[in-house]
Write a protein that binds this DNA or RNA. Sequence first.
DNA 1: CGCCCGGTGTGGTCATACCAACAAAGAGGT
DNA 2: ACCTCTTTGTTGGTATGACCACACCGGGCG
Lengths: 242, 242
Amino acid sequence: MTTEAAWEPVRRVRMHEQVLAQIEEKILDGTLGAGEKLPSERELVSALGVSRTSVREALRALEAMGIIEARTGSGADAGSVVTARSTPALTNLLRLHLALARISLADLVETRVQLERNAARGAAESRTPEDVARLSELVEGMRTADQEYAQFNALDTEFHVTIARISGNALATDLMQALRGAVESEMAAAFARLPDWRAVAGDLVTEHEMIVRAVEAGEGDRAAELVAGHITRFYQDRVLNP
Amino acid sequence: MTTEAAWEPVRRVRMHEQVLAQIEEKILDGTLGAGEKLPSERELVSALGVSRTSVREALRALEAMGIIEARTGSGADAGSVVTARSTPALTNLLRLHLALARISLADLVETRVQLERNAARGAAESRTPEDVARLSELVEGMRTADQEYAQFNALDTEFHVTIARISGNALATDLMQALRGAVESEMAAAFARLPDWRAVAGDLVTEHEMIVRAVEAGEGDRAAELVAGHITRFYQDRVLNP
DNA sequence: CGCCCGGTGTGGTCATACCAACAAAGAGGT
DNA sequence: ACCTCTTTGTTGGTATGACCACACCGGGCG
């Protein structure tokens, strides 16, 4: 008996996959960093010996993942540029994944609670006076944001994302933001069903204030519980059993 | 002063983006579900009034997100098929995102711990005897997997993913799996640096056994702490300060 | 009956041409 | 000398047509 594994089925490797793999490798090993520009499509064509079709399909895949951005024209910032803004792409992917994998809203909310609970705890530990001021400012903005729901929601999102950022975990911040964005439309629909969303918003503002105070006081466990309750309660009362 | 917002800059909407948007919408509203086949590229061309180039670039974007799979040939299962297997794509996206956003391994491990802690707690609550048997089976496999690291790692991954699955949260399961996959190469490198990885693997197996026992006993908090320590310790001792 | 072998439809690739956007170089007038 | 307009070249975006590799499917031949 040898240590060899069983036969591995050969898969047809398409041209654009190889192009994609080469670019991804240059990103992973640091050759290509955020903000840098990759060669023009026509240059890649001659450098890789494939058609522009294949090059473009690879670039399209990268763009769908939020890895690059394409800008037309000539000059310094034209061409395909590597970007670090993959959060929107992550959001979009999650949104589709939720629909296809038939993941329940309950699972998503539970996951969000897990992440936000830890973010609140971390924020309470490492917050600075400036952080607290920023949070208070956002809450104040929410209190006076009586124009429309979109405005309120934008501030609400920034509040929670800011807490995650304060906690210092960049990945958790991005995931939180993506999960939030993936159910943004559902949340908007839930708000639209409310007879008076302003009253509910008032309650949320009060809860936000309590969270800010707990973070300010450095009471991590309390902040975590407040955030968890804040999210769970809204979901239970307004979305699941409206 | 009106309630109108400021002018919104118009962006050039490319053809393939519109194609992509239409397909995504059909997925989001349930018209297109997992396993279903979309029209052939040439049909889409005549249905949408665009060139095959644009159709293909949209499909390529969907494929990069793991939403569809393309199979050549004719017959029933040929063509572009909607799939629910977006976890590999999520893994790949996260891997690139980590490199570009310069997210530290510490942040990733911390996030993993958060998710796994909750998964262990949930698993201890809702485990069945079959679940426990499955976990024990995996641990036993790890004990006898002395051939090579890849084999051990595959079982290790399945162990943790199984715990998440037992907890019942499909999204957390997928995220855990993706995060794990995103750092698989780093972990393999860490193992390769060990003078005797089999000894370390033995410790890991012992820890796994303790986790299984806690899950079996329904001791959620204890299972959570064990998993957290299990992951953090390995990372601290073997990766950060090897 | 069973095997082979084109027909047909699918995605994959290529080459070419042209369009749209944009910047920098150049031509022209003041 | 300065400003303005035009030209030119480079970039990504789209369209078209052709051809290839693949896989099923059915007819025809042994």
